[in-house]
């Protein structure tokens, strides 16, 4: 059921999409339109979240840097 809902939502999203012409892509190319505008900051923050929460990270990033209690 959940998968069906996801598929329907994805299909509706695709229908709602328009064709983006090359001359309309200037804003899409802006740093702030990237999923991670600053990869270095995102990586350092993810490291902190992985050290303080149980579901962040996953693949090991080394032992410390965490100050684990």
């Amino acid at each position: 059921m959940k998968i069906a809902i996801l598929v329907i939502v994805a299909a509706l999203a695709m229908v709602a999409c328009t064709t983006v012409e090359p001359w309309e892509r200037e804003r899409l190319a802006h740093d702030c339109m990237q999923v991670t505008p600053d990869a270095g900051e995102a990586e350092m923050r993810a490291k902190t979240e992985a050290a303080r929460e149980g579901s962040s990270g996953g693949v090991s990033r080394g032992g410390a840097g965490c100050g684990c209690e």
Binding site: A13, M14, A16, C17, T18, V20, E24, R25, R27, L28, M33, V35, G58, V59, S60
Partner: peptide, 21 residues
């Protein structure tokens, strides 16, 4: 400790002002 992972990503330019990921 062995770790192995697979990440798959999709990014779609939905409109000139909207990106879905």
């Amino acid at each position: 400790l062995w770790s192995s992972g697979l990440a798959t990503e999709a990014t779609y330019a939905m409109r000139p002002d909207l990106v879905g990921h």
